[in-house]
Design a protein around this nucleic acid. Structure first.
Lengths: 205, 205
DNA sequence: AAGCATCCGTAACAATGTGTACGCTTATTG
DNA sequence: CAATAAGCGTACACATTGTTACGGATGCTT
C-alpha cells in the first residue's frame, strides 16, 4: 500500500511532466509547474529525481522500456517469421511517431547538455535495432528475406518505414498519423523492402 | 561603403550566432553573448532583428535561400535528366545533413513558439520538394523514371536518400558524413529508387 | 496514543534571461 | 568644420528559473 501509493504518485508526476512538455516545451516546463500540476511538492521532485534532467531522463527511460516491452511481447509469440514481420511494422512505426515519442525527441533536442539525447538514442535505436535484426535473421532463415548484412538491412527498413517522419513531426510539419495511415505506410515499406532485398544487390565496398 | 559595412557586420553577427548555436544550443545562446562575440551592441541586435526569434529566423531564411540557390544553379545546367538526377542526390543530401542545417533544425526544435520550425519547414521542404519534382518529371519524360504521383515519388526518394539521418544527427547520434559517404548513400538511394519505380507498383487507394 | 518519517505549500535565494535606456565615441554628411 | 546619426559599452528593470529551506499537516509504525 505504501509502494503502491508511491508508484501511483510517480505516475501522476511523470504524466504531468509529459503533458506540460507536450504543451509548453522543455524550456517552459519548470519544475514548479510540474509539481503544481501533479499536486506534488517541489521538494519531492528533487528528492526523487535529483534535478530537472533527472526527471526527464526518467521519462525517456520509462518510454523506452515500454517500447521494448511491447516489441518483445510481440516477438515472443511463436508465429511464422512472415507474420511477425508483418506485425512488426505498424507497431514499430506507431510507437516511433506517437505523440509521446515525438514529445520526448523534442525535449531531447532542446536539452542543452545533450544528455537526454544520448539517453534517448541509446535506449531507443540502440535497444530496438537488435530486436529487429533478430526478426530479420529469422525471416532470412525462413527464406522470406535475403540479405548479407543484417545491420544494413535494418537500416534500409527503417529508412523505408520511418523515413524523415520523425524530424518532420518534431518540427510540427505533419500531424499524428492515424492508424490506417500507419498500417498503409508499414505495408508499403515491407513490400518495398522485399523488392529491394530480392533484387541483385551491390556489395559493400 | 556604408551598406557594405553594414552587410559585413550583419554577416559577423549571424556568423557569431551560428557558432554559439552550434556549441551552446538555442537555449543557452543569449542575445548578449551573440552581441559580445560579434563585437556588436545589444541595442543593435534588437534594432535589426527585433528579438531573439527574429535573429534566428533570419538565420533560417539565409540558409534556406542559399540552399535553394545552390539547387537551382545545379538544375539550370542543361544536362540530360539522368545526369541531373545523379548530381542532385549528393548535393541535396550534403546540404540536408550539413552541420549548419542540423544546427538550425536543432534550434527550431528547441524554440518554444514553434515559429522557427514553421519557417524552417516552409523554406526547407516546401521550397525544395517542387524543385525535385521538376527534375523527376523531366526524368520521367526522358524515360529514366516511371511514376504516377510525382509528390509520392519525391517522398519515397527522400526516404531512401535522407531517411532518419536528420533526426539522428539532431540528437547527436551520428557525426557529420564525409563526402564519400554522402556520395555512396546518394548513389544507393538512386539505384533503389529506380528499382522500386520500375517494378510493378500498387496504386494509392 | 505517541513518535516518526514523509510530503505539501510556500517562501527565499542566487543566477540568468530578455528587452530598454543612456552617455560616449566614431564615422558620415552638408 | 560643424552637425548629425549610428553604434558600442554598460547598466537597468523586470521576470523567471533551478534549487534549497522550513513550518505544518498527514498517515504509518510501534
Amino acid at each position: 500500500m505504501r509502494d503502491e501509493n508511491k508508484a501511483a504518485r510517480k505516475r501522476r508526476i511523470e504524466q504531468a511532466a509529459l503533458e506540460l512538455l507536450a504543451s509548453k516545451g522543455y524550456l517552459a516546463t519548470s519544475m514548479l509547474s510540474v509539481a503544481k500540476r501533479a499536486k506534488a511538492s517541489n521538494e519531492t521532485l528533487y528528492n526523487w529525481y535529483g534535478n530537472k534532467q533527472g526527471l526527464f531522463r526518467s521519462l525517456v527511460e520509462a518510454n523506452a522500456g515500454e517500447v521494448r516491452a511491447l516489441l518483445e511481447h510481440d516477438l515472443v509469440q511463436d508465429r511464422p517469421p512472415e507474420a511477425t514481420l508483418k506485425a512488426l511494422g505498424p507497431l514499430l512505426l506507431g510507437l516511433l511517431v506517437s505523440d509521446r515519442a515525438i514529445t520526448l525527441n523534442k525535449a531531447a533536442a532542446a536539452d542543452p547538455s545533450g544528455e537526454l539525447a544520448h539517453e534517448l538514442t541509446q535506449a531507443g535505436r540502440g535497444a530496438v535495432a537488435p530486436l529487429i535484426a533478430d526478426v530479420f535473421v529469422k525471416a532470412r532463415d525462413a527464406g522470406v528475406l535475403r540479405f548479407v548484412d543484417a545491420g544494413k538491412a535494418v537500416g534500409l527498413y527503417l529508412d523505408l518505414l520511418v523515413g524523415d517522419l520523425q524530424i518532420r513531426r518534431v518540427l510540427g510539419a505533419v500531424p499524428a498519423l492515424t492508424q490506417p495511415q500507419v498500417e498503409r505506410r508499414a505495408s508499403r515499406a515491407l513490400a518495398n523492402l522485399k523488392l529491394l532485398l530480392s533484387a541483385p544487390r551491390h556489395q559493400k565496398p
